[in-house]
């Protein structure tokens, strides 16, 4: 990286440490923090959208749609996220390729499943195997976003479903008395009003999401935990210019501080938002929210 780092064996003390901490591997480690933050920033709104869809579906008067929404909430919430991540991404990837295969290679005559192999035509590969590595990485990132959003969307749906029901009945009735249609009531009363009820549950979900980010590693994104493990493990002199013992403790300590700081900042920001949202709202104790709490359970069974 730096010219002064050309021969690490001659270095000692701080200059050694400086060179050590600026190896390509460490830069990848620092970059992974960006990946994690970006993923969280992208996933949160997408998951919220999934959750909104799920909640609206679960409330629907059309029975099949309502079942679908409820089934989504019940099933995805019922499965531990790790178990879900372990097979879902491969399934999703194969599903996408299968669809592309059907669309792009209609005259393909070989079976797609050959023994344990999953074979689609070259044009259906996602991304194409000739694509540059960064394309593969971006694709992997979006698969991860989708999977995370699907899982956390189920929890968000549960929160929003409860929040929609918590909007005071009197307000709905007043709106109906003014002659609003169901759709108008939903758009003008329920949705704007529900946020204050949903925020505590949603902010808790955000906290859970932050702490789920080590699972990124399962989804094929090289995240901070992957690098911390890799960098911290014992390095023998044969394979590195910077040999060291088992330093995982220090790397994980660093991660611990990162997560604690991140949670704390989130708590402060969310408290501010809550304060603003509940401004003028006469809910009991809404002005002194003390921290996030588990999502309410008033969702569909």
């Amino acid at each position: 990286m730096f010219a002064s780092c050309a021969d690490p064996e001659t270095l000692s003390g701080l200059s050694w440490l400086w060179c050590y901490l600026t190896t390509g591997k460490h830069l990848a480690f620092y970059g992974a923090f960006g990946t994690v933050l970006l993923l969280l920033a992208v996933t949160a709104p997408v998951a919220l959208a999934f959750g909104f869809g799920g909640a609206v579906a679960a409330r629907s008067r059309i029975a099949p749609l309502s079942w679908l929404g409820r089934a989504y909430i019940a099933v995805v919430r019922g499965v531990p996220d790790i178990a879900f991540f372990l097979f879902f991404v491969i399934a999703l990837d194969q599903g996408i390729e299968w669809l592309r295969h059907k669309a792009k290679c209609p005259d393909w005559d070989q079976p797609i499943r050959q023994g344990s192999d999953f074979v689609v035509c070259a044009e259906a590969k996602m991304p194409l195997s000739t694509s540059a590595q960064w394309v593969h990485e971006v694709y992997g990132f979006w698969l991860a976003v989708f999977t995370f959003a699907l899982v956390f969307g189920a929890f968000a749906a549960n929160v929003l479903y409860g929040a929609m029901r918590a909007v005071p009945q009197a307000q709905i009735e007043t709106a109906e008395a003014y002659g609003m249609t169901r759709r108008q009531v939903f758009r003008r009363i329920t949705v704007p009003q529900m946020w204050v009820y949903a925020l505590p549950g949603l902010s808790n979900l955000w906290m859970v999401l932050i702490k789920a980010s080590p699972l990124l590693f399962l989804l094929g994104v090289e995240d901070i935990v992957y690098w911390a493990r890799e960098l911290g493990s014992t390095k023998t002199p044969q394979f590195t210019a910077y040999p060291h013992g088992d330093w995982r403790m220090w790397y994980f300590l660093f991660l611990l501080v990162f997560y604690l700081a991140f949670t704390r900042i989130s708590e402060i920001v969310l408290d501010r938002i809550m304060l603003r949202l509940s401004h003028g709202q006469a809910t009991l104790g809404s002005h002194k929210r003390t921290g996030p709490i588990g999502m309410n359970k008033a969702g569909p069974p």
Partner: peptide
């Protein structure tokens, strides 16, 4: 710790 880890560290040869 399972799925595909698309490495950043690659080189098209």
């Amino acid at each position: 710790m399972k799925t595909l880890i698309l490495s950043t560290a690659l080189l098209a040869l």
